Amino acid sequence: MRVSTFLWFDGPAEEAAEFYTGLFADATVLDVQRDADGAARIVVFEIAGQRCIAHNGGPGYTFGTAISMYIDCDTQEEVDDLWAALTEGGEEGPSGSLTDRYGVTWQIIPRALETLLAGAGPDAAERVLAALGTMTRIDIQGLADARDGGGDPV
């Protein structure tokens, strides 16, 4: 058995798959199935071992924010680079979320957030979460400053 992410597009499945796999070093397009006219119908790709299937199914369905692609980043540079690439032509959202140019929602979350919360007492955790609530692209140093009582997160 295999679990994959299935993405329904109205035309740009191949373009989106090429864009996504171009963002990650460990990503590749595995297969493209075309219709009789040569247009891509199904594009199978993989990002960091996660298999995704992009389907050009027409206008029947649209993406929503209840489901998103979650990327946990090691560094602020990774957060910043992915944020810049995925928001180009898209839209920033709250607390590390964004919707890309294809309508797919992403969560760009630094691993440091988990560490900052796990090592924090209740007051410090509340300050971290309050600071997070004011951010679009997450700033690790801003969260650390909030945990330590610096700055004004609200």
Rank of each mutant, 00 (worst) to 15 (best):
L132A: 04
A125M: 06
R51L: 05
R101S: 01
A17H: 05
P94M: 15
A17Q: 04
A54N: 03
A84G: 00
A130C: 13
L143V: 08
G133T: 05
L117C: 10
F63H: 08
G150M: 12
Q141M: 05
G89N: 11
V3L: 15
A112D: 12
R101D: 03
V43I: 11
G57I: 04
A120V: 06
Y61V: 11
I53P: 02
A48H: 08
Y61A: 15
D81S: 15
E46V: 06
A16M: 03
L143T: 07
T87K: 08
T136W: 00
Q141D: 13
A131N: 07
G11Q: 07
A16Q: 01
D31H: 12
A118Y: 11
L116Q: 05
T99R: 11
G93F: 05
Y61M: 14
V104W: 00
V154T: 12
A39S: 09
E92R: 12
T28E: 14
R127C: 04
N56S: 06
E18N: 13
I71Y: 08
D31T: 12
T65S: 14
Y20P: 01
A40W: 02
A120I: 06
E126K: 14
A131Y: 03
Y61C: 12
L86R: 01
R147H: 02
L30H: 09
L117P: 03
T28L: 02
V104Y: 02
G150V: 04
T65R: 14
L116I: 03
N56Y: 01
G89K: 10
D10C: 11
E78I: 02
M1D: 10
G103W: 04
Q76R: 04
A146P: 02
T136L: 09
Y102G: 04
M135P: 00
P153A: 08
E14C: 02
D145F: 05
E15V: 04
D80F: 07
L7W: 03
C52A: 11
A48R: 07
W83L: 01
F45W: 09
G89L: 09
A118P: 00
A85S: 09
G90D: 08
L7R: 02
D31W: 02
P94H: 11
R137I: 04
A84V: 00
T62Y: 00
V79Q: 07
Q50N: 12
E18A: 15
G149N: 04
A27K: 05
Y61N: 12
D35E: 13
E77N: 05
L132Q: 04
I138P: 01
P12Y: 05
V44Y: 08
G133L: 05
D72Q: 15
D72T: 15
A36K: 13
W83P: 02
S95V: 01
Y61G: 09
L82H: 09
W106Q: 03
A118N: 14
D139M: 07
T87S: 11
I140C: 07
F6A: 06
P122E: 14
V44T: 13
D80G: 11
E14L: 08
A120D: 07
F63S: 04
G90C: 07
F24G: 02
P110L: 11
V104I: 13
Q50C: 10
M135W: 08
I71P: 01
S97A: 11
W83S: 01
D26C: 06
G142I: 01
G60D: 10
A66L: 06
S97Y: 12
V29R: 03
I71K: 05
